[in-house]
Design a protein around this nucleic acid. Sequence first.
DNA 1: CGCGGAGTTGAACGCATTCAAGTCTTGTGG
DNA 2: CCACAAGACTTGAATGCGTTCAACTCCGCG
Lengths: 263, 263
Amino acid sequence: MMLDQAYPGLFSTDESRRLASMMGAEATARPRERVVRGGIPLTTSLYICSGFMGRFCCDRLGRRQFVALQIPGDYVDLSAYLLKSLDHDIDALGPSAYRLTPHEHLDQLKYRDPDIYHKLWRISMMDSAIHRYWIFRVGRLQGKARLANLFSEMFVRLFSRGLAAPEGYVLPTSQADLAEICGVTPVHVNRLLAELRLDGICTFANGRLVIHDLPKLFRVGEHSRGYLCLDPETEERIAALIGGGGPANTAALEPPPRHAGLG
Amino acid sequence: MMLDQAYPGLFSTDESRRLASMMGAEATARPRERVVRGGIPLTTSLYICSGFMGRFCCDRLGRRQFVALQIPGDYVDLSAYLLKSLDHDIDALGPSAYRLTPHEHLDQLKYRDPDIYHKLWRISMMDSAIHRYWIFRVGRLQGKARLANLFSEMFVRLFSRGLAAPEGYVLPTSQADLAEICGVTPVHVNRLLAELRLDGICTFANGRLVIHDLPKLFRVGEHSRGYLCLDPETEERIAALIGGGGPANTAALEPPPRHAGLG
DNA sequence: CGCGGAGTTGAACGCATTCAAGTCTTGTGG
DNA sequence: CCACAAGACTTGAATGCGTTCAACTCCGCG
């Protein structure tokens, strides 16, 4: 997958080619392979050609918390270009292929092609928006909604790259991975998945989500896709698919008014 | 507060002045005032001169989940420059002062001063790292650790700007705000604060945290400050203060090995 | 004085965890 | 080809952390 395909309406074919020409040869990772280790100086940034990767932190007992799920077409660790190392690790989920861009090439863009540079900043901000929404998900939603919300997000992100159909999509995670993404225990994920199945919403098995009722999935997950920055065409196609499944934008949801405050 | 002060070692005095010259006049916000509304086209980005602000999303019942806490010296919504609107709202917590930078001025930097442009991208990535850590906090830590972890983070961030002492610092939030930050109920925050107090760790009251045992605070909060990108001098001062209170970097914590995986 | 928000405390409930035992599938070696 | 091991998944039962509902105190302010 090239960048113009991954971000329709953002990169031109020419820009996409230029960026691709800066990347090294395609490398592959096996399932569960550590792709980037945190805390180590980095001189390259990683672009996912195919496959899925997960970014995670660990608590003091070594239990993982995923902080991002990256899909084909994602520029995964642009933050490494800016911060020179990562504060977390990156693992491949299923078999993956990726290409590395040396930071010195990105530095050249800074002077020679400020507009592409700007767009790279932009996609890093799109990732940032996804991070924020993940905080909301694990902070405010409870079990079933968390899973449904995650499945909703992944549907939108994958669909916009032609990697999901209204009937379902491939998500190469185990139930234990889903638990580490949603901040619950594997046992509980198992029960929640059973509930979603019995509710006639979706069935997750063998690294594949089968969707039975897309609007209901979005409703139960309380998902608003505003943060995903869809191009207008994709936005329209998705709105048509999920109908009244969820508001396009969280901003529609107002917090209850409060008075006073701490002086 | 100017940018060279807020990010020691990053911006030169000259760069800081240039950025300040691009900002509009200082405006003020009262406690609980909405400063930026999500979903609306924006043409400026906000820099906090003094005071605290919170960024939050709402669930369908209008309950808030904070996704960031911004302190004096933060360039709050650079993401608005890239994405042209926010997916969330921003409220002042206590009384605040801020200045707005028109996006067209940032656009000029893109061509005329790529290095400053790069540094703005960098600080937006530092925010992104904080977002990731917040996912970890609400996803993996339980009540008491969540609060302690938050207090630890705020200590480091404020201390690095001269706004916190080892004895404590001002944090103009109510217990209800802390609840919306940590993803728990206000009642529970109250009980957790009591526990932290009885443990001899810290006392939070009247928008002020009094720290009784800084190393213990970091230990109980399982806080690793690696993600905060401290300049070497600050890093050293903080390391001296908290001693064995917590690892500098999460990368030291390894996930348990797993085999196989989903093909 | 009385109102309202913030904070405090108690008791009952419930979602999610934990521990445990089991099934199913897959890959490996005899 | 079958036996076995290992991991993923499933299910039950007990526990507990955090929620919910409720009542009450404290304090600043009009």
